[in-house]
């Protein structure tokens, strides 16, 4: 464990908590893409199956349980409790266009052709594009509530911090994983446009308005 990875995990945890609080407090999931949340749930379920097979550390196991539970709670709030506030017609990204290529790529490029490894690889590829429906929704509505932009900033920062973690681990432990690094770079690049808007607008107290 290193400071970059810890900061990344905490940023990830913060993002998930911000989202849950936003939906719970405002009793609305307006501006949030349910499809992205479904993809994140798939990412956690396919990646954290090893929760039952390999024990790495208490921290690792607890965080996995928290992420899966929070993801399930978010889906419950969005699709059951506050279903009426879900923005169906703007959340129209075709997630099969993300799922199918990730499955195919995971079957072609992986470290090991075993079920667990293929699922882990699929999860890594899917996570890198899982935010697209959310960014698509923000671009369609043309704006995002400031709490949603804080959520996106924390979520984008998590994988950016992981990139620093991988640089550190390569230098300090001669450890690297090209699949995770490649997907992490793609994932972080997808947020760059948002990071620019967040820093130039939201931090100045303005609302996140995408140029029409």
């Amino acid at each position: 464990m290193n400071i970059f990875r810890l900061a990344g995990d905490l940023s990830h945890l913060l993002a998930i908590i911000i989202l849950l609080l936003k939906i719970w407090k405002t009793r609305s999931c307006a501006g949030i893409s349910g499809k992205s949340q479904v993809l994140f749930a798939i990412v956690y379920l396919t990646r954290y199956l090893d929760l039952f097979t390999t024990y790495i550390s208490l921290y690792n196991s607890i965080m996995k349980i928290v992420f899966i539970a929070a993801s399930g709670a978010t889906l419950y709030l969005m699709y059951v409790k506050f279903k009426a506030t879900y923005d169906h017609n703007h959340d129209s990204f075709r997630i099969e266009f993300l799922l199918i290529p990730c499955v195919i790529l995971a079957l072609i490029i992986n470290h090991d052709f075993t079920v667990m490894e293929i699922l882990w690889t699929f999860s890594i590829y899917l996570e890198s594009v899982a935010i697209l429906p959310q960014l698509f929704l923000v671009s369609k509505t043309g704006e995002a509530e400031s709490i949603t932009s804080h959520y996106l900033f924390a979520l984008g920062s998590y994988r950016a911090l992981y990139l620093l973690n991988w640089i550190y681990r390569y230098m300090a432990e001669s450890h690297y994983d090209l699949i995770a690094i490649f997907a992490g770079v793609v994932q972080t690049i997808l947020y760059c446009d948002f990071f620019y808007l967040y820093i130039t607008k939201v931090l100045k107290g303005k609302k996140l308005q995408l140029p029409a």
């Binding site: 990875r5 995990d9 990646r47 470290h111 882990w120 992981y162 973690n165 450890h175 995770a180």
Partner: peptide, 10 residues
């Protein structure tokens, strides 16, 4: 340099 075998990251 060893490729990551055990996925010890979240």
């Amino acid at each position: 340099v060893k490729q990551n075998r055990e996925h010890d990251e979240l």
